[in-house]
Structures are given as C-alpha cells and as structure tokens.
Write a protein that binds this DNA or RNA. Structure first.
Lengths: 204, 204, 204, 204
DNA sequence: TACTAACCGAGACGGTACGTCATGTCTTTAG
DNA sequence: CTAAAGACATGACGTACCGTCTCGGTTAGTA
C-alpha cells in the first residue's frame, strides 16, 4: 500500500520519500491534521517544498500515503477458532484507529475528500478494500464452519465494527479496549446480523 | 442548542446572526467544509467579516453553531412500542448524518477539534449529550418494559448506532436507508449488547 | 508624479504607501535592482506582501512609483540667460541619472518594460513627457531670443543630452561632471542640431 | 569575441556551445530578457542545465556571450572620405542597437552587472573597447586629414553617438534611421566636441 | 579495436521568490 | 452606536527557477 495517489516508486523515484512520509507522520502526531502544512512537513523532513510537490499533487495525497504506510490490512490467519479470528480482525481495526495521533487524521482526510468523489474512490481503494476483503475471508471461513449464519451480511458487520471504533475515537473519546473488542465480536457471534428481508426473529 | 461556542443570544445580540448561519450552511452545502472560509460566509451573508468575528471566535465555532441548529436531538416520544421508539431514535440519527451536505461536515469539524480538548468537550456537550440522554431515556423505558435486558450498555448501543451510520456516510458512502435502520434496531432488540463479560461488571 | 501605474491616492488609500516607497528605494540603494524583491521591500517596510500587491500589480510598477518620486522634472526658470537655462536643464538630467543607486535602476526598469508596450507607454508618460516638455519650453524660449536656430529639433537635442548622460552612467561608468554638462550645452548653443537634411523637413 | 566571461574554447570544449548560444538568442528574441531563464535556454537548446552551468557561471555570462557574437565592432575601412567613414561608424552603432530583439537586452544586461564592478569591467572590455578603438582610429584619421579639429574628444563623440542611439532605442522608442545617422555625423563634422578647457567658441 | 576519459541529457535536490488567498485584528465611513 | 467596508501583518498555498548534484549513456581520442 505504498502509494495511494502518486506513483513515486516509478523509475528514478524520489530519494527522500521515506524521510518525507516520516516527517508527515511526525507533524500529524505532534500538531494534528489542521496544522499539517506542506511547509511544515518540508521543514521537518529537511527537504525543499518542491520535492514534496514533485511527488504528491496536494496535501491530501501526501497524508494518504503517510497513513497508508501504517494502516493495517493483515490477512486474518486461519486459527481454527472463529472467536479468535474475529477478535484478531477487531483488534486490527482498533489498532488502526487507536494509533494515537496518526489514524485520527483519517476521518479528517476522508471529510476533506468527500467533495472529490474521484479521490474519495481512490482513498477507499487504498484504505478499505484490502482490509475489508481480508476480514470478509475470515467471516466466510466462520460461516463455512457453521459458526455464523450463512446469510451473514459481511459488509454490515464490518461497518458496525469499524463504525463503532471510529465513532468512539472521533466523537466520544471513550476508550478502545479489550472489553469493547470482546463486545463487538460477540455482537456477531451471538446474534449475527441477517440480510434484510429474512424474517425469523430470535428472542434472547 | 443555539450557541455552542459563543453567547450571541445575549442582550442586544447580532442583527444578522440568522443570516450568517444560513449563509454558513449554504456555503457548506455548495462547496463543502474545506471551502468554508469566513470570507465566503461573510460575502454570502452580505455582511462584513468583522460582524462574524464579533460573535464567533473562529471558524470552528461558527460551523458548530450552524450545524447545531439543524442537528436533531428530539425527545423520543413514549409510543408504548419499544421497536417503534428505537426506530425513531435510529431514524433521527440517520437524519443527522444523511443530511446531504451539512452534517457531513461534522466529522471534519470533530477532527479539527480533536487536538483542542477543551473545545472538543464543548462540542460533545453541544452535539452529543442531549441527544444521547434523550435516547437513553427511551432505552431505559424499554428496559423497564422488559423488552431489553436490564444490564444494557446504553452507551455502547448508541456508539454502535451512530458509529455505523457515520462510518457509512463518511467512509464507504453506502446508503443509509430503512433497511439499515431496521437492522440496527434489531441488533439491539434481538441480542442486546451486554456489559463486559458474561457477568455484570461495568465498563468505564 | 505620484503614481505611475496605480491609483493609490484614491479615497481610503493605503496607510503605508510612503513607508513602502521609502523601503523600495532603500533596497534599491543597498542591493541594486536585481536584488529588489517584493518580499525584501515588504520586510524592509515592515509590511505584509499583500499590502504591496494590493496597490501595485507587480515589481515594475512599484519601482516606477519609487523612482518617479525622486525623478526631477522641474520647470526651467526663465533666467534671461540661455546658456544658464540650458545648463539648468542638463544639470537636472545629470542629477536624475547620477543619483547613485536609485536612478541607475531606471534603465533596468525600462529594459524590463520593453516587451510590454502598454506599460512602456505609461512609463514614458510618467518619466519623460513632463521633463521633456519643460525643457522644450526653455529651448523654445532660447529660439525666441534668437540664441538658437528656429528649426531646432528639440527632441533630438534632448535625446543627445539624456542619451550621453545615460550612456556614461550605464555603459562606460565615466564621470558626469560640470565639464560634461558644459560640453553638452555648447553642443547645442554652438551648432544646434538641425532638422533632417539641410532643409526643414520634419522627422517623425 | 567568442567568449566574454568563460573560456569554452579550451581543449575539449563543449560540443553544444553554438546550439546553446543560438537558443539563448532565440529566447531573447521571442520573450525578452526577463523571460530568459537558464532552464528555458536549456530546453530550447535540447541540452541539460548542467551543460550550460559547466561553461557559464551565470545567466549574465551566457547572455554576454550570446550578444557578443552578434555585436558589431568592425574596423572602419579607409574610404578616403571622412563623412562616409563616420557614417559607417554610426551605422554600425545603430545596427548594434536596432537589432530588434537581441541587442535590446544589452542595457538590461548592463544594468544587471552594475552592482558587480568586476563583471562590469569585463563586459565593457568585451563590448566597448574594441568597437571604440576602431572608431577612434577612424576619427583620428579624419583629424589627420584636417576634417576634424585636432583637439577632438573621441570619447565624448562616441558617448554622444552611442548614447543618443541607446536612449532612443530604450527610452523613447523613436526610430533609428538614416536621418538620425546623418544628424549624428554632422554634429561632429560641423562643430566637433572640444576638450574641456578649450575656450574658443565658434558660432554657427 | 578497445579503453577511458570527458562530456552529455536528464532531472532530483534544497532553496528563494513569486503572486494569490485566508486569517484574525484593526480603523475608517455612513446610516 | 452599529455594522459595512476594507486596510493591515501574517503566513501557507502551489509554481517557476535557481544553482548543485548524481545518474547512466554516448563520443572521442588515445593506446
């Protein structure tokens, strides 16, 4: 996931890419997204502004690449244990948003990209698709094992997981701990979300 | 919920407050949060910049007030029907985030406030507390009716609801429809989120 | 001759106009035309760049105004003595170009404007017309007295005077002294430049 | 007069010298001195920037060499006719400055060099000395013939000629035609400039 | 004929200045 | 006595060139 908006890995690519992305994350960590200016990153990286502009068209692209490098989208290992695998998935998601000062910029970035649908699409491809597909594989594995109902809406499950975590991180500021992770896993394993139109309601 | 960061309701308040907040929402609708500049709002409102600065200390405060005016935090009416009441709560939340061009700015605003804990606190008070308390009342009413388990974590329920909605609005762009609302309600009515562990420990 | 390219004398005009023009001349004096950057002038004047750009469209316009303020275009007094009057005119011209560090920028400015005929025209109006007309008045007075031939080409006389002075200042670096002034005056009083040919055709 | 500031004729000299100087003149012709950037010349010449910097220390040096190649400094042929020879000299000078888009850069160059006395000296050596000496030879030949007074100030004559031409080219924009040439020649042949201190004044 | 320089194009690099724009403060003008 | 209008210092934007500096890839010119 090296490059979201640019192709700096191209031949003769930048010699200072790593330095710049490190600096971008450092600025993000220390002063937050609104204080992330290209000039600040250039200064922190000991680099001329034009070196940044040569490789990234704008701030969003730079931040996207900087975040992409630390955004986890692991394959979920086949542990033979559905609960453990789903917990792995939730923990990974928490990791991505708990990452104190870095991934906190992600919603700001997304908000900044909202008015630019084309960039938004590339953003989603960079940050969501791979992670979601990896988690979906684990969910389907669980379905195969009979641990989850086979009409499971894997998208909804992931929206609930990531949404709850993001919301706590961004809006309420409450903690993202093992307890939350366990709740989110159980939410699925105990009463899986069903596809709309399915009618048999269960009672506790 | 007229004023988040300022006290414009004070005696002799501004004659153009409404004009300005309308203009702010108009700019937000038409060009998005990143394009919302004080100058643009002043121009759109036909007002001098200083008139805005007289009443709001900065852009965040202005946006917060503009959004607060349209952010729903209704009392949930006692309908005698738990499912209907919870659906009311979820629909209200969806309304807040679906509101095409306006509430989309809310995450950007939150992200901008993240590095300023004091402002963030006031932001939460303005946008979350009242709505959350109103919904909590309805949830407790349902518990009282025996429709929901009495160890229900009302905070977690609301984080899941609002989080999922926000996440879809901000990150995946997928639809916020009746189907989703129904799923979110059932998630709670079918298998309520329980407090941590099987036991009745409380989470912070 | 306050304003060559702008209209800063307009109502509500700039509060720092004088400060800026002083600073521009100071920079010109100390570091020369090529080192005159808008940022340097802004810094020297203790002024923001935009304050300069508010009133002048570009560097050339600023320099033009700065120079115009010190460029002499006196009325030539009627001294009753042709030689003294012409000497006054030549001395004034020498003053304009000898002015160590300031008027030396004039040729650079002119060269910079050469590719912009419209600006060049305004430049000529600002710097040449008034001075040339004033000197022409004195020359015609001398013709009236019978001290100069009545087919005198006043333009050519002035081109010779100013040209020789400019050339020495710019190209040879040789001195602009009383001796030169005297020579230039005599060049006209002894054998006035005649209009084209021996006859009295006029040149364009 | 191949090289004013550099020594590119040295052993193993540049293979693309001519290409570069041609390109420099082309850029000068098309866009004027202020638009002459090293990068533009390099691009126009199909050459790397470093190739230019290898042979010229800066823009001024490059322009100087480019202009030097087209700056005329002919020996004045002995035509046996003083008027014709002086006219030859004046025409040559007019050629140098009339040269539409090229020699117009000369004053800009000179102005740019003014703050660098050492470069200015080399500039004068490159552009003035040879031409002036050649013209001085012709003037002295005329003195020898008795056509000009033997106290003729050859420097002043040349300053007047070149100055008037330069001034018209740079400042007034008026034409440099045969008429002017004739006037400038007559100015000398009819009443030569005398050395300072000589007192016998002539009347027309 | 092959080696070995110098020389070349290309262009990345750390920088400076550009001219534009928005900030938030301040003063001036007009109703 | 309010608010419009807008001047102002500040500072980031994204662009254009600067002059320095590797990079390979020719070209000569010996050897």
């Amino acid at each position: 996931m090296a490059s979201v908006f640019s192709s700096p890995q191209a031949a003769g690519g930048p010699r200072s890419l790593a330095k710049i992305l490190d600096a971008a994350r450092a600025v993000l960590s220390e002063h937050g997204y609104p204080a992330l200016t290209i000039e600040a990153v250039a200064a922190a990286a000991g680099v001329g502004k034009s070196t940044i502009y040569r490789w990234w068209p704008n701030k969003e692209a730079l931040v996207a690449d900087a975040l992409a490098e630390v955004f986890r989208a692991d394959d979920i290992p086949d542990l033979g244990d559905t609960h453990a695998e789903l917990r792995y998935a939730v923990d990974m998601t928490i990791d991505n948003y708990a990452n104190e000062d870095i991934a906190a910029s992600l919603p700001a970035l997304a908000a900044g990209l909202l008015p630019h649908p084309e960039l938004m699409t590339r953003f989603r491809e960079a940050f969501l698709f791979r992670k979601r597909e990896n988690i979906a594989v684990a969910l389907r594995r669980a379905v195969g094992r009979g641990d989850l109902p086979d009409d499971l809406d894997t998208d909804l499950v992931q929206d609930i997981w990531a949404g709850t975590i993001l919301y706590r991180r961004l809006m309420t500021g409450s903690s993202l701990d093992a307890d939350l992770a366990e709740h989110l896993v159980r939410l699925v394993t105990d009463t899986p979300g069903r596809r709309s139109g399915e009618s048999d309601r269960e009672s506790a």
